[in-house]
Amino acid sequence: MSGKRIAVLVSGGGTNLQALLDAQARGEIRSGEIAAVLSSKEGAYALERAAKAGIPGYVAARKSFPDNRAMTRAIVDRLQTLDIDLVVLAGFLHILTEEMVQAYPNRILNVHPALIPSFCGAGCYGLHVHEKALAYGVKVTGATVHFVTEEPDGGPIVLQKAVDIREDDTPETLQRRVMEEAEWQLLPRAVSLFCEDRLSVEGRLVRIRD
Rank of each mutant, 00 (worst) to 15 (best):
R176A: 14
K139Q: 13
G137E: 01
P152K: 09
L205Y: 10
R69H: 15
I116F: 01
K161Q: 13
Y58A: 07
D153A: 10
L79P: 05
R189W: 05
S192Y: 01
D153Q: 09
G57P: 03
R107C: 13
Y45G: 03
L115Y: 05
V87P: 08
D77R: 13
I84K: 05
G126W: 01
Y136W: 14
R189I: 00
V163A: 02
L109E: 04
L193E: 00
D77M: 04
V10W: 05
D197F: 11
L96E: 10
T173D: 11
A70Y: 04
P188W: 01
T173I: 08
E202Y: 04
L17R: 04
S31M: 11
V145Y: 05
A162V: 11
N110F: 05
V178R: 03
R49K: 14
Q160T: 06
N106A: 10
L82C: 03
I108Y: 08
H130F: 02
R204Y: 08
K139A: 10
D85K: 08
K139V: 00
R176E: 14
R5P: 04
D83V: 03
D85F: 03
E196A: 07
N16P: 09
R30Q: 14
D85R: 06
Y58H: 15
L86A: 07
A44N: 08
A162Y: 02
I208V: 13
D197L: 11
I84Y: 06
D168K: 13
